[in-house]
Design a protein around this nucleic acid. Structure first.
Length: 758
DNA sequence: GATTTACGCCTTTTT
DNA sequence: GGCGTAAATC
């Protein structure tokens, strides 16, 4: 296969770039991922280095997975080694699992997610006798994270970020860091910081890793923050072979510390850098592209690219003002129904600024019996039951992990109450020893009441039992034993409905299977736990779903035939909390740009003056988003409810119209059990799962292909007929090795391959 | 120590 | 309106 054949001249230059730094400014839909993957393949083919000396970094697991997939497809799988394609965080965790002992941590450290962080901080506030009224844990954690992302330690906090509460926060920051360290734990920010510190302080390691990774490629460079930038500098200090791809117009993570200056300043930071602009868009119609450009041109913080396309003009963009949020959703749902009827292969997305907007759309889609997939609802590893069991696993393997211990010490309730726990944590803090050790002392020394003491002793026996077995039993066996011994099922059935409990038990079985598979692949417990910690909500995206719902942030990097961009109202988009400065507004505008450019063929913009927030019929009506007014009127086809689709009477377009077919009736589809009126989004989804099993995200959605087994005969759209040699679970996917009679042996990912069983 | 009720806050967003 | 935490009660 000729790698250069299907590339345009700029792409070709990028791919053939030799040594030294390079910046590829890649507009939306200009073949960014293709450039990275082809370049990796090109480096390997031309013998620039062996595959394992190439490191490609992305931000999400999903992006990394896709890239890995595409590189494998380009290279075939006969290779003995592979390039490392990884997220920043998982790369750093990998490094730290080998090296962090040099920084005084043990290599079996725990990773604290946002929930663990919150628990820890609440603990600290409590120990200090502070109520968290004026300083909420959320706020404090946000400021700490901000400081960490700017390489500001606790000592410098107050001086660097002066504010009325700066002293307080600096102090909390210091305590927080101390407690993390004592718990042998890192938070998400630490993962990057410690990796940077390690490479910075230990020249031998820095030389080793920068020699090993001779070519480094970075995707979405505009979203890098300071520690990520530092990491790249350290890793490329000797060879300068840094190849970054990004688009300053799609920089949307400033709030997480991303520094758009990293991309704007690249040429100063890396003198002699080659700069390549990719300006041809292969994705969208001319009109969609023009609209996107007209919005983002209002920004000043950009290098300026002129995107163009050979695609046809396409339709003008429909902009619809709905009477209410509910009728907005109903209208979108009806449009989607029409699209699905006419174009069953279309991939459609509803994009919005904030997650809570999904609810109306979910209801409307269910009403219309349309299967959909919500990205970023509750991720598998974020579920309560999974986190509970993993906390047991953490305490078994890292006995210093106080937060894990606190999570499960009385879950399920075993008679270790708040007073006992308080007393133990206070003593642990005074002595500076892990909580588990205090539990041990207290359970033998009967200073506490007899009942609590017994409960502690029984708990400790369980933990000791598992710790004794931990090196002989498999992780799956341990987890199974935990779930069994603590009678988790009983607890679930006590506080929840039978279905919810059954659902959670299924998840636990899934977790045990995942643990077994992980171990079969030769992974350590920590690799398994790391994957759980680092897997994100985005990973719930189901590429087979025809209708996807997600936030604009989650949508970056994806594309759809039809996009509905909903909730274009002042205060919501741009969000009121991000409208304080010109820079904030520019970021919101970039977000709008990202949303528009997800669309291949059709784009719909919707807004409503009456979106009921919470509370009693709040305030005044919303105004349409300023972004709509930045768009050229000739590109927009504007409608107001009452004069369009529903074919209502023509009346005052600004009157509030109660849409007839949009009464809050819950219509179950035929044959289903009597439908409850769901009270919460969780119930709604649970109900959906019953009614439309095919619409569920995750495994069930692959129902059609799930039955594939090795030995089966299958048909592939391009490769023709073949036989499955092996089928192996890799992450959430299945990797298939298939021998095709026409093209020989291929490795495929089941989700993408769309194999037809014969 | 566990269960029930009430109150307050939330809804911005990769790992 | 819904959810989680905190007080109030069993």
């Amino acid at each position: 296969m000729d790698l250069l054949a299907d590339l345009n001249p700029q792409q070709r230059i990028a791919i053939q770039h030799g040594r030294g730094p390079a910046l590829v400014l890649a507009g939306a839909g200009s073949g960014k991922t293709r450039v990275i993957t082809y370049r990796i393949a090109h480096l390997i083919r031309n013998g620039a280095c062996r595959p394992e000396h190439i490191l490609a970094v992305t931000f999400t697991n999903k992006a990394a997975g896709e890239m890995r997939e595409r590189v494998q497809a380009l290279m075939g799988l006969s290779r003995t080694s592979e390039p490392l394609i990884s997220t920043f965080h998982s790369f750093c965790v990998r490094l730290l699992r080998r090296e962090i002992h040099r920084l005084g941590y043990r290599n079996d450290f725990s990773i604290y997610d946002t929930d663990d962080q919150r628990r820890l901080l609440k603990q600290i506030l409590k120990d200090k006798g502070r109520n968290d009224k004026e300083l909420s844990p959320r706020e404090v954690l946000g400021r700490i994270s901000f400081a960490k992302n700017h390489n500001v330690g606790p000592g410098q906090f107050a001086a660097q970020f002066p504010s009325p509460s700066a002293e307080d926060i600096g102090e909390l920051y210091e305590l927080y860091d101390a407690r993390l360290r004592r718990g042998n734990a890192l938070d998400f920010d630490d993962i990057l910081l410690k990796a940077v510190a390690l490479l910075d302080r230990f020249q031998e390691q820095r030389d080793y890793y920068s020699d090993w990774y001779r070519y480094i490629l970075v995707d979405e460079y505009q979203d890098t923050n300071r520690p990520q930038y530092d990491l790249l500098r350290l890793l490329t200090s000797r060879h300068q072979n840094l190849f970054v791809v990004g688009d300053e117009d799609q920089s949307i993570y400033k709030f997480r510390g991303a520094d758009i200056q990293n991309i704007l300043r690249f040429e100063q930071d890396f003198p002699g850098a080659r700069v390549i602009k990719l300006e041809q868009n292969y994705r969208s119609t001319q009109n969609i592209l023009k609209l996107a450009t007209s919005v983002v041109e209002n920004n000043t913080e950009r290098k300026g690219k002129v995107l163009w396309t050979e695609n046809h003009a396409g339709d003008v963009i429909t902009c619809r003002r709905s009477a209410t949020a509910r009728s907005e959703a109903a209208w979108v749902s009806r449009c989607i129904r029409d699209f699905l009827d006419e174009e069953p292969d279309y991939r459609i997305a509803i994009l919005y600024r904030a997650n809570f907007l999904s609810r109306n759309f979910e209801e409307a889609l269910i009403n219309g019996s349309i299967a959909y997939c919500v990205v970023g609802s509750v991720a598998f590893f974020g579920r309560m039951e999974i986190k509970d069991l993993l906390a047991y696993l953490r305490i078994i393997f890292n006995p210093e992990d106080d937060i894990a211990l606190l999570r499960i010490i009385n879950t399920p309730p075993r008679g270790i109450g708040a007073t006992t726990i308080d007393s133990l944590t206070r003593q642990a803090l005074e002595k500076g020893v892990p909580l588990l050790q205090l539990v041990r002392e207290a359970s033998s020394d009967a200073t506490l009441g007899g009942r609590a003491c017994n409960a502690l002793r029984r708990f400790l026996e369980l933990i000791d039992g598992w710790q004794a077995r931990r090196d002989n039993a498999t992780i799956g066996e341990l987890l199974g034993s935990v779930a069994e011994s603590i009678e988790y099922k009983k607890m679930l059935e006590k506080d929840e409905t039978a279905e919810e409990a059954a659902n959670r038990m299924e998840n636990i079985e899934e977790l045990i299977r995942a643990a077994d598979e992980s171990q079969d692949k030769g992974e350590t417990v920590f690799e398994f736990l790391d994957r759980a910690s680092l897997s994100s909500e985005l990973d719930t995206l189901d590429p087979n779903a025809r209708v996807s719902l997600m936030t604009l942030h989650s949508a970056k990097g994806l594309e759809f035939d039809v996009v509905f961009l909903a909730g274009l109202e002042e205060g919501l988009f741009p969000h009121s909390q991000s409208s304080n400065s010109a820079a904030d507004l520019e970021e919101e505008r970039r977000l709008c740009y990202v949303g528009i450019t997800r669309a291949r063929r059709k784009l719909f913009l919707t807004w409503t003056p009456f979106r009921r927030n919470f509370g009693p019929s709040s305030d005044s009506a919303s105004m349409r988003s300023r972004f709509l007014d930045e768009m050229p009127p000739e590109l927009l086809d504007e409608w107001s409810e009452g004069r369009d689709y529903a074919d209502d009477d023509e009346e005052d377009p600004f009157a509030v119209v109660e849409d007839k077919e949009e009464k809050p009736v819950w219509k179950p589809s035929a044959g289903a059990a009597p439908a409850p009126q769901p009270k919460s989004i969780a119930e709604l989804r649970a109900y959906l799962k019953q009614v439309q099993p095919a619409a569920k995200s995750g495994d069930a959605a692959h129902g059609a292909t799930r039955s594939l087994k090795s030995g089966m005969r299958v048909r592939h759209a391009q490769f023709g007929d073949g036989i499955i040699l092996s089928r192996q679970k890799v992450g959430n996917d299945f990797k298939l090795i298939v021998t095709f009679s026409r093209v020989g042996r291929k490795t495929l990912i089941e989700r993408y391959a769309k194999l037809e069983a014969l």
